[in-house]
């Protein structure tokens, strides 16, 4: 038999064994198998293998699966669903470590508060502010020198100031 003819026919033998070959192609392959001992054996092998596979599937489908001892399932309760905030925190902390950010924010707040507490308060416009004056006699308060200096003048009880007192 021409070996080249066998190489051409051999791929069609599997289809012939599975009864998937029809028409002229089938007649060609059958004609060749009738005269070629090698291809006839190959066809017989395909038929045996196919029968064995079909029988195995049939046997497998008829097995009692309840006889199988399955591995035990892991016994842990399902996690409750995350709330909206938990999901947000999870999404943020998944990518960014929050502690350096919080530490930096705390340090910034401490710095701002510290500067605010340490800085000197602005000087009053009037550099001497009289809050209260009690005296034995009449008193006159005279602001002067652009508010930088103030005079409190005490008079004797029987003495009267010769200028109008500045209201306190």
């Amino acid at each position: 038999m021409n070996p080249r003819a066998c190489e051409t026919i051999e791929p069609a033998l599997s289809a012939l064994a599975d009864r998937e070959l029809f028409g002229a192609e089938r007649e060609t392959v059958v004609g060749h198998v009738a005269v070629c001992e090698t291809c006839r054996r190959t066809l017989e092998d395909y038929r045996l293998v196919g029968a064995a596979l079909r029988e195995g599937i049939q046997i497998g489908s008829e097995r009692d699966l309840s006889a199988i001892t399955w591995p035990p399932r892991l016994a842990h309760a399902p996690s409750p669903p995350l709330t909206r905030w938990q999901r947000l925190i999870y999404d943020v902390t998944r990518w960014v470590d929050p502690w350096p950010v919080l530490a930096g924010a705390a340090a910034l707040i401490a710095l701002v508060v510290g500067v605010w507490l340490v800085q000197p308060a602005p000087s009053p416009v009037n550099m001497v502010e009289i809050e209260r004056v009690d005296a034995e006699g009449p008193v006159m308060v005279i602001p002067g020198s652009g508010g930088k200096m103030t005079i409190i003048w005490l008079f004797d009880a029987d003495d009267q100031p010769d200028v109008t007192p500045t209201p306190i």
């Binding site: 009289i130 809050e131 209260r132 005296a135 930088k148």
Partner: peptide
Amino acid sequence: ITDGAKRLLDTTFRLANGATILVGGPA
């Protein structure tokens, strides 16, 4: 400012840095 038992002056005020207040009059 007291003169014995007499209280000639009793005052409270706020003094800015560098400011001066003059109290005059006691004989």
